[in-house]
């Protein structure tokens, strides 16, 4: 068996276009996931039973549903309730809100790691709640939440391969097209595995850099 590099070169533009789609969908989905997760964790911290319940339901639904089912519901089920979305939009929303369920738990653990006494000291000095979150809690949470967050972005990126099933022209979809057109199997899948590995190494490196940047003297 030989590895025909020519096929990979010939399909280079298709693979790169898929790579770009995967990268920007995952980037937007990750931003959405972090925002949704942070919002859920903040709501969870409010002394309101209804807010807590809402967050619990959100987290449990996201964790309890396979991402593929979530994507199917959004993409194929959406139109029946008047929600017709582009496949890429479904991908961003699906991966984003799905990831948000996991980020919510990461942030919640982060908030709980701050001793309540620090919050009380801030309240006694008259520091408003939102400033306590922004200046006392989140900065201290960062060192703790960066490693699991990096992990979560990596998982999200790998799960984005499922978007090929709902016709998003991302890396896996374009690779499948390459397989169908060339009848080659090894070259396309090895090439795509390398490309995913590149993205994920990039995420891991960024995570490591953030960790070093926000490590403090405590």
């Amino acid at each position: 068996m030989s590895f025909d590099i020519d096929i990979v070169v010939r399909y280079g533009p298709l693979l790169l276009s898929g790579l770009w789609t995967t990268v920007y969908i995952c980037a937007l989905a990750s931003i959405l996931a972090v925002a949704a997760g942070l919002a859920a964790a903040l709501l969870y911290g409010l002394p309101l039973r209804f807010a807590k319940l809402l967050c619990r339901v959100y987290i449990e639904v996201m964790r309890g549903t396979p991402i593929l089912i979530l994507l199917f519901i959004l993409y194929y089920g959406g139109p029946s309730i008047g929600l017709t979305l582009e496949a890429e939009t479904v991908g961003i929303l699906g991966l984003g809100f799905y990831g948000g369920g996991y980020f919510a738990e990461i942030f919640r653990a982060g908030f709980q790691s701050i001793p309540p006494g620090q919050i009380e000291a801030a309240r006694m000095l008259g520091i408003p709640r939102r400033m306590i979150v922004a200046r006392i809690q989140i900065p201290q949470m960062l060192t703790l939440i960066i490693p699991p967050s990096t992990n979560q972005v990596i998982i999200l990126t790998k799960e984005s391969a499922l978007l090929s099933i709902i016709t998003v022209a991302e890396l896996t979809k374009n690779t499948t097209q390459m397989v169908n057109e060339t009848f080659a199997v090894v070259e396309p899948y090895v090439a795509v595995a390398l490309l995913y590995w590149l993205i994920i190494e990039g995420i891991a490196l960024a995570g490591g850099a953030l960790e070093r940047r926000f490590g403090h003297a405590s």
Partner: peptide, 10 residues
């Protein structure tokens, strides 16, 4: 002023 100081470590 609190028993455990409650300084912000960062």
């Amino acid at each position: 002023v609190f028993q455990h100081y409650n300084l912000w470590p960062h």
